[in-house]
């Protein structure tokens, strides 16, 4: 079978599209960066990534304008057909603002609020640990062991998953939609800085939809594919376990 093909969507103001495409290719897929106003048929792609950056300058609120862009309507339709959609950082904000994440009601149910960070206010870039705490395989974690730890950077000012809806939190837990949570190097989930870099509720780093084919992840897996990218590691070109997010997508598409 042909390699799956992924469209990486560039909204004006995004800035992580290139390394995202590189990660897609490193996982053995094909991919292309498409502008928000592309005339190409998006339906011909097997999956989508919405990369990080500042889509539409984060005007009003991060992700709001891009969420209303016609291209997101198409991606929503494709997601409903079961195609995988990965939103990283600003892409995660866009998915939350469309309501696709967490996607339990037909409206925006959560927000990505400004970081609560006692060290630096606003934008914060540092390396953190997250682990795969979901007790369920989905399109993004199927190749990880339960509780497997990943090391990767966060780079955002508004990454704190919050909701006031207590019932929603219960639903997310029940549906096993909380996929990755911030933790210590050893895997302990402690709700304090810098382990939880932004004050996110329940240390949430990534949430999926109920079906598990759409995910919003705040940290940047595409910046942590090769060992050389890790600080305090050898500077080799060995692939690290983070690539399994992208390889899981590939397997999901191939198995579908």
């Amino acid at each position: 079978m042909q390699k799956p093909s992924i469209a990486v969507i560039y909204f004006p103001g995004n800035n992580c599209e290139e390394e995202t495409l590189r990660a897609v290719i490193a996982a053995g897929m094909r991919g292309k960066i498409l502008n928000w106003n592309t005339k190409e048929n998006l339906g011909s792609y097997d999956g989508f990534v919405i990369p990080g950056g500042w889509a539409y300058e984060d005007r009003i609120r991060a992700g709001v304008i891009a969420a209303k862009d016609p291209v997101m309507g198409i991606i929503r339709q494709e997601a409903e057909k079961g195609k995988p959609v990965l939103g990283i950082c600003n892409g995660a904000q866009v998915l939350v603002e469309t309501g696709i994440i967490p996607g339990l009601k037909d409206k925006v149910e959560m927000a990505l609020a400004p970081n609560k960070n006692p060290f630096v206010s606003g934008y914060y870039n540092a390396w953190v640990y997250i682990k795969n705490t979901a007790n369920k395989k989905n399109a993004f974690n199927s190749l990880f062991k339960k509780d497997e730890i990943l090391h990767l950077p966060v780079a955002h000012g508004e990454g704190r998953f919050v909701t006031k809806d207590k019932a929603l939190i219960k639903q997310l837990i029940k549906n096993k939609q909380i996929i990755f949570q911030y933790c210590t190097k050893e895997g302990k989930i402690e709700n304090k800085f810098p382990i939880n870099p932004n004050g996110s509720m329940l240390n949430i780093a990534a949430i999926s939809n109920k079906k598990g084919n759409v995910i919003a992840i705040m940290p940047h897996p595409e910046r942590a594919i090769w060992e050389r990218q890790y600080q305090d590691f050898k500077k080799s070109d060995k692939k690290m376990n983070t690539i399994k997010i992208f390889e899981s997508i590939k397997n999901y598409i191939l198995e579908k």
Partner: peptide, 30 residues
């Protein structure tokens, strides 16, 4: 406090980030 306010690993090419050594290092090209 300053460096953590700057994006040091966007583009995915940083090998030694600002503050980790006497000089920074990036991968030049694919």
């Amino acid at each position: 406090k300053c460096f953590s306010h700057y994006d040091k690993n966007v583009m995915g090419n940083a090998i030694i980030e600002s503050g980790q050594a006497d000089a920074g290092l990036i991968k030049a090209a694919e």
